[in-house]
Design a protein around this nucleic acid. Structure first.
Lengths: 151, 151
DNA sequence: GCGCACCTGACTAAGGAGGTCAGGAAAGTC
DNA sequence: GACTTTCCTGACCTCCTTAGTCAGGTGCGC
């Protein structure tokens, strides 16, 4: 139930790309802006490229840019590109698991967990992230002081 | 963003304990009922005991039982006992992370993710799990066909 | 054709996941 | 008091993932 450094880096780099309106941005600038080891970031950007989220050009004046408008890329897209499916249980999707005995209803719980994860990750786009206005669902959740409490 | 085998096992074993109304249940019975390797399960039960979720007695007629009423133990309690804090980013709690540049609002997104995870995991108790009636929040999420779609 | 910047595979060190093995220590039974 | 039962605990093991680094290859623009 944790977010890896890779996923965090990927989203942060994507956010920088979403904010950069002028032409390709080189890896080094992304790495500097977000304090990410350059060589590691390049591997991540390659995965984002293979997933169709980012495009790139080499050489002088080269760099990376988003393959689609930032409004059409959700954080879930970025996370899935580098981490694979969200909310798997024992490396299997929750809808494919069969529980026995008194754990029978556990499947529904994991399905609900995934649905609630998606409710946030699929509705926040890169455009939202770099604007000053996150979607209402996030604002609501964040405005409850309880959400900020460690536990 | 995945649930480990250990956490899944822990919840399943706890569900069996919640359902068993008569005295201590031995590890072997839990392992059989839920198809969990016995020796691995014993380590997990030990962790649950250290976390104060389960109690145990050795010897003939020994076994495990819940330390508190099943209504007072949430799935989050069980998961945290074996996996540690829920929804950490890069091994740190989201409220302690500082983001720079255009990723500034990412913190709020992770906070919202955690809040939504908690909304499910902290509200489903072991008593709910073994009954035929999960809390309304779960029922609502599960009733949307979209929640069952792979992605 | 030269440099720039991305592209790619190989490698590594540390740690976690998912167990197994062997024995010790308490609780009950005869 | 011996014996059985069951939990308790540490050590160990294999495989995989995480979070990187290194070294070179490849295409692009000038």
């Amino acid at each position: 139930m944790r977010v890896s450094a890779k996923a965090d880096y990927a989203v942060r780099a994507a956010a920088e790309l979403a904010a950069a309106k002028e032409g390709p941005v080189k890896g080094e600038r992304l790495a500097d802006a977000q304090d990410i080891p350059l060589q590691f970031l390049e591997h991540i950007l390659l995965e984002l490229k293979h997933a169709g989220i980012v495009r790139a050009r080499r050489g002088a004046k080269g760099g990376y840019w988003l393959a689609k408008p930032a409004e059409e890329i959700s954080i879930a897209d970025v996370v899935r590109a580098v981490e694979g499916p969200i909310a798997h249980v024992q490396s299997a999707p929750p809808e494919s698991i069969e529980y026995r005995g008194h754990a029978e209803h556990l499947q529904e719980v994991w399905i609900a967990v995934r649905a609630n994860l998606r409710a946030v990750l699929e509705h926040v786009t890169l455009a939202d992230l770099v604007s000053d206005h996150l979607p209402a669902i996030v604002e609501n959740l964040v405005s409850q002081p309880d959400a900020w409490a460690a536990r």
